[in-house]
Simulated assay, not measured.
Amino acid sequence: MTDSTKPRARAADKRRRLTTEAARVLYEQGVERTTLADIARAADVPVGNVYYYFKTKDELVLAALSEHSAHLDELTGRLDQLSDPRDRLKGLIEAWVAQREVAARYGCPTGTLAVELDKRADGTLDEKAGTVIRRLLEWAERQFRALDLPEPDDLAVTLVSSYQGMSLLANALRDPDIMARQGAHLLRWLDSLKVPDPAA
């Protein structure tokens, strides 16, 4: 690495750390309770340097939403390696259940952020959070469509809203077992879905 590329690499590393920690800290503390100093401290970056990369907290919120989107893409990308769409959907549910301890403490990362942003007066960032959830819905719909099931868009809404509901309840009651039980219920529901017999 040349001397001229080292500063760029260090800058990229700082930005990456800030983005990663913004996603985590905003998720754990919420937007209103989080300061730029909190994120700088978590990323081990001097607070004055934060303004070089992100001028406002809203820019950090956008970066956090991009991080959530990247995590979703990474998860669905792995699941897309499975040949059976039903197995992909089951893998999604299993990934949700695997995060039950974290969900019981903080809720769904994107869902809680979307709800919090919706309550803000400016109303600009809530649409960005909705975009991440919409991408999940579209991915789930493609799986149901690949299974030739009727009304795949409604099935996707049922699946994702079930996840949001079980995350909310697990968080409200601080009970990760809710996620485990509801996840098992969703897996049985998936197995029960059959392509209608046209001759029937």
Score class of each variant (00 low, 15 high):
residue 88 R to H: 03
residue 163 Y to I: 03
residue 140 A to M: 06
residue 88 R to M: 05
residue 189 W to I: 03
residue 17 R to L: 06
residue 117 L to Y: 08
residue 4 S to K: 04
residue 175 D to H: 14
residue 39 I to S: 02
residue 125 L to H: 01
residue 141 E to G: 07
residue 43 A to C: 01
residue 75 L to E: 13
residue 59 E to G: 03
residue 25 V to Y: 00
residue 64 A to P: 11
residue 128 K to E: 15
residue 21 E to N: 09
residue 24 R to K: 15
residue 148 D to W: 11
residue 10 R to V: 05
residue 163 Y to C: 04
residue 52 Y to L: 11
residue 112 T to D: 01
residue 83 S to I: 04
residue 36 L to W: 05
residue 44 D to T: 09
residue 99 Q to K: 13
residue 169 L to T: 06
residue 143 Q to D: 02
residue 161 S to F: 09
residue 59 E to L: 12
residue 102 V to F: 01
residue 81 Q to V: 06
residue 84 D to N: 12
residue 80 D to F: 04
residue 9 A to S: 13
residue 68 H to V: 02
residue 113 L to M: 14
residue 28 E to T: 09
residue 139 W to E: 08
residue 47 V to W: 04
residue 48 G to Q: 13
residue 78 R to Q: 12
residue 71 H to M: 12
residue 161 S to E: 15
residue 23 A to C: 04
residue 47 V to E: 14
residue 102 V to G: 00
residue 66 S to T: 15
residue 62 L to D: 07
residue 106 Y to T: 13
residue 8 R to E: 10
residue 76 T to Y: 12
residue 194 K to Y: 04
residue 134 R to C: 05
residue 47 V to N: 08
residue 169 L to N: 07
residue 145 R to T: 01
residue 148 D to T: 07
residue 25 V to F: 00
residue 110 T to G: 04
residue 158 T to E: 08
residue 113 L to E: 12
residue 98 A to Q: 09
residue 129 A to W: 06
residue 187 L to Y: 01
residue 104 A to Y: 05
residue 52 Y to C: 15
residue 103 A to N: 04
residue 51 Y to A: 14
residue 142 R to W: 00
residue 60 L to D: 01
residue 99 Q to L: 09
residue 198 P to I: 14
residue 120 R to Y: 04
residue 71 H to I: 03
residue 61 V to Y: 08
residue 64 A to K: 06
residue 86 R to D: 07
residue 107 G to P: 00
residue 81 Q to D: 07
residue 31 V to Y: 03
residue 74 E to W: 15
residue 77 G to E: 13
residue 177 D to T: 10
residue 102 V to E: 08
residue 160 V to M: 10
residue 4 S to I: 15
residue 63 A to Q: 01
residue 75 L to A: 10
residue 28 E to V: 04
residue 177 D to H: 10
residue 53 Y to S: 03
residue 196 P to Y: 06
residue 47 V to I: 11
residue 135 R to Y: 00
residue 82 L to G: 04
residue 46 P to R: 00
residue 29 Q to G: 03
residue 128 K to G: 02
residue 9 A to R: 15
residue 165 G to P: 02
residue 137 L to M: 08
residue 132 V to C: 06
residue 154 D to S: 13
residue 15 R to K: 14
residue 57 K to Q: 15
residue 171 N to L: 10
residue 171 N to W: 15
residue 165 G to W: 09
residue 22 A to L: 11
residue 19 T to H: 02
residue 174 R to Y: 13
residue 124 T to C: 00
residue 77 G to F: 09
residue 149 L to F: 02
residue 26 L to P: 03
residue 18 L to K: 04
residue 24 R to Y: 08
residue 19 T to D: 00
residue 35 T to M: 11
residue 78 R to E: 15
